[in-house]
């Protein structure tokens, strides 16, 4: 008998979260990287307030993107090295459910890093980042990053160059997501009227959905063996 789709999804998610809670392997590395990145940017760009307003969203998103690449690499590599992935593939379950479980796990971890970045950025750059709209953009942007990232990490984990290849393969493809997210964040923190930037969250949502559907259906091809 086949285990139900959502049952599998949540089993994988629960396993990832439990492992993460006990080892804190991903969060410690990603968190430290994010902290360092924001600090380095903040003294590399000792800028006046206006310039900071335009720079901060770029800083936040570059940091989130690279942190997610680090996290995705580690999460997939440990899955491979410890043989867990082979066991998952042996199980008589839906491959797309595996994708959804891994995706949700990665999404939550990266989102947590993103949520830590907002108060940190607010502190270091003296610009209020903790706003409902910024939070929404953060969720949407990380959603897109994680779906493409989960698919590509599953792919590159099986290649020779691994870590290096994931960043090369992932960054150009997530560019539409990053572009929309950066533009929206910049507009929001400079208090522009909503009709000026509302198209960006809309574009982000559409791109997210397209990517999710594409990844959902192609994941099965990536991990078959």
């Amino acid at each position: 008998m086949k285990t139900g789709f959502w049952q599998v999804t949540f089993a994988v998610l629960r396993k990832d979260m439990l492992a993460e809670m006990r080892s804190r392997e991903l969060l410690s590395v990603m968190g430290l990287f994010a902290l360092l990145s924001v600090i380095i940017f903040s003294f590399a760009l000792e800028l006046d307030r206006e310039a900071r307003e335009t720079a901060i969203s770029g800083v936040i998103w570059v940091t989130v993107a690279f942190a997610s690449i680090i996290g995705l690499n580690r999460s997939m590599n440990s899955e491979r090295e410890q043989g867990n992935f082979d066991a998952l593939l042996l199980a008589p379950v839906d491959r797309s459910a595996l994708f959804l479980g891994k995706f949700l796990g990665n999404f939550l971890v990266v989102l947590l890093v993103g949520l830590v970045l907002l108060p940190l950025g607010t502190l270091l750059y003296n610009i209020t980042l903790i706003q409902p709209w910024v939070l929404l953009i953060l969720v949407l942007g990380i959603f897109g990053l994680s779906s493409i990232g989960t698919l590509l990490a599953a792919m590159t984990a099986q290649t020779r160059a691994r870590d290096a290849l994931l960043s090369i393969a992932m960054l150009p493809i997530v560019l539409p997501v990053l572009l929309a997210a950066v533009r929206a964040t910049t507009s929001i923190i400079s208090n522009e009227p909503i009709e000026n930037w509302i198209t960006w969250p809309q574009i982000l949502l559409v791109v997210d959905l397209i990517y999710l559907v594409l990844c959902f259906f192609t994941f099965g091809f990536v991990i078959e063996e």
């Binding site: 493409i148 698919l151 590509l152 792919m155 099986q158 290649t159 393969a169 150009p172 493809i173 560019l175 539409p176 397209i210 990517y211 594409l214 192609t218 091809f221 990536v222 078959e224």
Partner: peptide, 17 residues
Amino acid sequence: RRFASVYGILAFATVLL
């Protein structure tokens, strides 16, 4: 071949961009 097929499909997003 499998990976290249998947990536080739995804990469088209940048052409549309």
